[in-house]
């Protein structure tokens, strides 16, 4: 296993392995996304309380779940780049940040749109939506810190520290926001409490969550390849790839 971990450190190898994975992962992701959406939109019964507006759940919940997982992926990549000084982990972290931020934004947007028919207001200070907003700020903090450094090597290290601090704080933020929500809000219908979701609605949701995880991986690998080309533009293997690409 250790040689795998070590090989992961060599840019050309990572570039090539990302290419092969993408070749079969992108079609699978697109198929899964389309299938999940059609299944969720057309072939599931409407919710007896919220009617058809609940169908937004098939975008909102997967995006929220993967956005949170994305932050952990970014923080762990940051930790690896700090502790074992692997340049590739720095590239992975750099690639994960914008994708995670975009997914968090999707979750927030769909959550806000979903709030309108159910509560009549565009923005509802529900516990999960507020925590999702704070997660977006954490992501934007990492992206802003990266952009404000000139020396990109140091930028990666600083972002690694910040994402680790963020990772430690996420559970605290989530718990304290949940607690804050329960303090000020009498237990009206819990926006996110549909635990008793019957199977016909659950399966498309699980498919969509898997599709979003695949989507995150695809975007991550694509960003990694682009970042590698940019950082290693003076090396031989990049010139070779460029000349091959130029030839055909």
């Amino acid at each position: 296993m250790w040689t795998f971990f070590h090989k992961l450190g060599s840019p050309p190898w990572l570039y090539a392995i990302a290419g092969t994975i993408l070749r079969w992962l992108v079609p699978i992701t697109l198929i899964a996304l389309v299938a999940g959406m059609i299944w969720g939109l057309l072939f599931t019964p409407p919710d007896f309380r919220q009617g058809d507006s609940y169908r937004i759940i098939y975008i909102h919940v997967p995006a929220a779940v993967v956005a949170l997982a994305g932050y952990y992926v970014m923080a762990i990549a940051g930790a690896i780049s700090l502790i074992w000084r692997m340049k590739m982990a720095d590239v992975v972290m750099r690639a994960a940040a914008p994708v995670g931020a975009a997914l968090t934004f999707i979750a927030l947007l769909t959550g806000a749109i979903w709030g309108k028919p159910t509560w009549g207001t565009w923005w509802v200070w529900d516990a999960r939506i507020t925590s999702m907003l704070i997660l977006l700020f954490l992501y934007l903090g990492v992206v802003a810190l990266y952009e404000s450094f000139d020396n990109k090597e140091a930028a990666g290290k600083a972002c690694a520290v910040l994402s680790l601090v963020g990772m430690v704080n996420i559970p605290i933020v989530y718990k304290s926001v949940d607690w804050w929500y329960s303090l000020h809000q009498p237990a009206s219908i819990k926006f996110t409490g549909e635990s008793t979701i019957d199977p016909s609605m659950l399966y498309p949701l699980l498919l969509m969550i898997a599709a979003f995880y695949a989507l995150f991986t695809c975007c991550l690998l694509m960003n990694i390849r682009a970042e590698l080309l940019q950082r290693e533009s003076r090396t031989q293997w990049v010139k070779k790839i460029a000349s091959e690409k130029g030839a055909d």
Binding site: R55, H60, I106, L109, T110
Partner: peptide
């Protein structure tokens, strides 16, 4: 129409699809 909720559901889906496309 989705008996009244169509506008919200479709706007949410289209926005999400747009962002996903740009991400890819």
């Amino acid at each position: 129409m989705m008996n009244g909720h169509g506008m919200y559901v479709w706007s949410a889906y289209l926005a999400a699809i747009a962002i996903i496309m740009t991400l890819l």
